[in-house]
């Protein structure tokens, strides 16, 4: 299949990647850029494990074709760590017990980040709504919801640590 060269920004880095028309953004991220933090759970947009932020919005990377990501600004889970230090949101996932097997965690964290970027003071219902497209089979969601609410509260209180990463305070 003929390849085309596209340019996009991933975690702040400009990348030029040769893609085929049928390549998924997920394959571009995992196989071409070797960013293995983004997971594939179902390949059909039902589990949210492959969620990344594309131009500020959370998307299932398995449902976006790589050519559609030309000139896009993409943030993956790797983009939330700055010089080896996790973001406040990731830290709260750990401190609140929101990570068990961890396979859903990258997608879950990206969805939560997109929510907090958009709504810095969400209610529990807001959080549950936002996360409803991300499946987790280990935790029963309660500690994930808590992690997001605690992060919002800490950011709202002007915690010394803001949430590093692309595009926003949280």
């Amino acid at each position: 299949m003929r390849k085309q060269l596209i340019t996009l920004t991933v975690n702040g880095d400009r990348c030029e990647v040769a893609v085929t028309p049928d390549m998924r953004l997920l394959d571009l991220i995992r196989d071409e850029l070797e960013l293995k933090g983004t997971k594939e759970g179902c390949g059909e947009g039902e589990c949210g494990a492959c969620t990344v932020i594309m131009n500020g919005l959370p998307v299932n990377a398995c449902l976006v074709l790589a050519p559609q990501a030309a000139e896009a600004d993409i943030v993956t889970i790797e983009g939330l760590t700055t010089n080896g230090t996790m973001s406040l949101l990731q830290r709260q996932f750990l401190d609140n017990g929101a990570v068990q097997c961890g396979f859903c965690s990258p997608g879950m964290i990206m969805t939560a980040k997109a929510l907090l970027d958009d709504n810095p003071a969400p209610s529990e219902d807001d959080v549950r709504d936002a996360l409803s497209g991300n499946l987790c089979r280990c935790t029963g969601y309660e500690k994930i919801v808590d992690a997001v609410l605690v992060t919002a509260a800490l950011v709202g209180q002007g915690s010394a640590e803001s949430v590093p990463g692309e595009g926003g305070a949280a």
């Binding site: 960013l35 889970i77 939330l80 996790m86 401190d95 017990g97 990570v99 097997c101 961890g102 990258p106």
Partner: peptide, 13 residues
């Protein structure tokens, strides 16, 4: 918190 949680939450695992 899980001793191996940072790898899982950061995508490094």
């Amino acid at each position: 918190p899980p001793v191996d949680g940072e790898e899982r939450a950061s995508g490094r695992a």
